[in-house]
Computed example of a mutant assay.
Amino acid sequence: MPFLQSNYRPPAYLFNGHLQTIAPVFGVKRNNSLYTTEKLELPDGDFLELDWVRGGNDQLMILIHGLEGNSRSHYVQQMAEHFSAIGWDILVMHARSCGREMNRLPVLYHGGSTNDIAVLLKEYAQKYNSIVLTGFSLGGNIALNFVARHATPQNLKAVAAFSAPCDLKTSEQKIDRFTNRIYANKFLLKLKAKVRKLENLHPGIFNIKKLDDIKSVQAFSANFTAPFSGFKSLDDFYLSGSSLNSLLEVRMPTLIVNAQNDPFLSKPCFPIELAKKSDHLFLDMPKQGGHTAFPITKTKSWMPERLEQFLENIL
Rank of each mutant, 00 (worst) to 15 (best):
L283T: 11
N207K: 14
S301H: 06
F3G: 05
N115W: 00
L239Y: 13
V25C: 09
W88L: 08
R96V: 09
S6T: 15
G139Y: 10
A193V: 00
K215R: 14
I208G: 06
S84I: 00
F47P: 02
F26M: 08
D167S: 11
S229G: 10
H94R: 03
N185E: 15
F187M: 10
I214L: 13
F228Q: 08
L191C: 07
G17W: 03
M303H: 03
M61D: 05
A125K: 12
F26K: 11
S84G: 03
S240V: 09
L40R: 12
P295G: 02
L67S: 04
D116R: 08
V217M: 14
I182T: 11
F187L: 15
N57M: 11
A275Y: 12
A219L: 14
F310V: 12
A164N: 05
D213P: 08
P24T: 08
I62N: 02
P253G: 07
R251G: 05
K186T: 04
D51K: 09
L144N: 00
D46V: 10
A143F: 03
V53Y: 05
A148Q: 05
S233A: 07
S233V: 05
A275D: 12
K194C: 11
G112S: 10
Q309W: 03
S240M: 12
N145W: 03
L4N: 10
K127D: 15
N32I: 00
P286E: 10
A184D: 00
I272D: 10
S266R: 07
V250A: 04
I22P: 01
I117N: 08
A193M: 11
G66T: 12
K127T: 13
C98H: 04
E49I: 04
E101I: 07
R54M: 08
F162Q: 07
G112W: 00
Q77N: 00
R251W: 00
P271I: 01
R196V: 15
Q5E: 14
Y183N: 07
C269D: 14
Q173A: 04
D262N: 01
L48Q: 14
